[in-house]
Design a protein around this nucleic acid. Structure first.
Lengths: 185, 185
DNA sequence: GGGGAAGGTCTGTTCACTGAACCTACGCCG
DNA sequence: CGGCGTAGGTTCAGTGAACAGACCTTCCCC
């Protein structure tokens, strides 16, 4: 299903897409995957999502072929975007663009995306203005914009995101973890 | 709110976007607006959405400034996309692209988008390959692709969509209405 | 003034999300 | 060995939203 009653009878590609990624939380889980989050507990602290729902969404994304589950140690798994999952990048990017245009804090954008190869910021359509290409998700670097705000939320994942890094690469949570004097919700 | 518990604490543009358009059905209502649907009863037959939910979504979209409600006759209203609503076009387009890539029927794509000025089909990023621009939503023409299928669903709106037309322009429902021998769900 | 369409509201039921508690396996430390 | 912490879940009661279907009101047309 997707949203209670599935949209099966909708002969429309948008409905098809929503069947796969339209459930509550699903898009945010995928967003976190792009940001480099891979472990259950990291999704948990970053999303404030009920554990049962997270379990459910991860399972579903795995069976849909968006994520791959891999045990990095007995009983511990991490979740990685598959090629299919990565193909969602244009959707994520357009959502982020729109969200920032419509509701950016006064301070400015929260996150900036750049073409990693040349360092140029992407335009609204996801195109690198210098190279004239739409970079693959693996070639995008993300960094906090002027509107980013640690006061709003301060968990180890959010802190780690304050260092620029390539999308899809695992976050460096070690230092962020040790910096943590208190783990504020 | 947006999805039960709102995503207020997410300092992320994607979460902001989902707060506005992430609820069940909301995206499909907006899709229909782009397709030219304007009236309560047309949304109803095309979406198979519970009436109460439709009322609620339309109301919310109006208060969010995505739609404008206009009485075209006492007690009868139609809903039109505002500029803010139109700015969602890139998101809709990327969703449609992705949905068709991932789950197109064997017969092929369900819908095709073309740049109305020159008649060229848009590429996956929404760019017109001939003109090199991302056409505004008002300059996009939509027509059924080879994978479109009236057998799946056959209401007056779906039938009207079988004629090519410009996005945002009202559908010509009159002939489709009269053609209707029986209004199959 | 009877019938039909448009655009809703109301109601009972089902279903999914929520929050909190509980559980298990592993690793480390003394 | 025994205790503690962490990762990654599962279980369960409570709640709020979605669902289907009946009902209602206003307008229009004959």
């Amino acid at each position: 299903m997707a949203l209670g009653k599935d949209y099966e009878l909708q002969d429309c590609p948008v409905a098809r897409a929503l069947e796969l990624v339209g459930e509550r939380w699903t898009i945010l889980v995928i967003r976190d995957c792009f940001l480099g989050v891979r472990r259950f507990s990291d999704f948990l602290v970053h999303l404030d999502i009920p554990r049962a729902v997270l379990t459910n969404r991860l399972e579903r994304l795995v069976t849909e072929g968006m994520l791959e589950r891999r045990e990095y140690s007995p009983g511990r798994s991490e979740y990685l975007l598959t090629d299919r999952g990565r193909s969602l990048w244009p959707i994520l990017h357009s959502l982020a663009e729109w969200g920032d245009q419509q509701a950016a804090p006064r301070a400015g954008r929260r996150r900036l995306f750049a073409h990693a190869e040349c360092g140029t910021d992407l335009d609204a359509a996801g195109v690198c203005p210098r190279c004239g290409v739409v970079p693959d998700a693996g070639d995008v670097e993300i960094r906090p914009g002027p509107g980013a705000d640690l006061a709003l939320r301060n968990d180890r994942v959010t802190r780690a995101l304050f260092r620029p890094h390539r999308i899809l690469q695992p976050l460096d949570l070690t230092t962020a973890r040790s910096t943590a004097s208190s783990e504020v919700s």
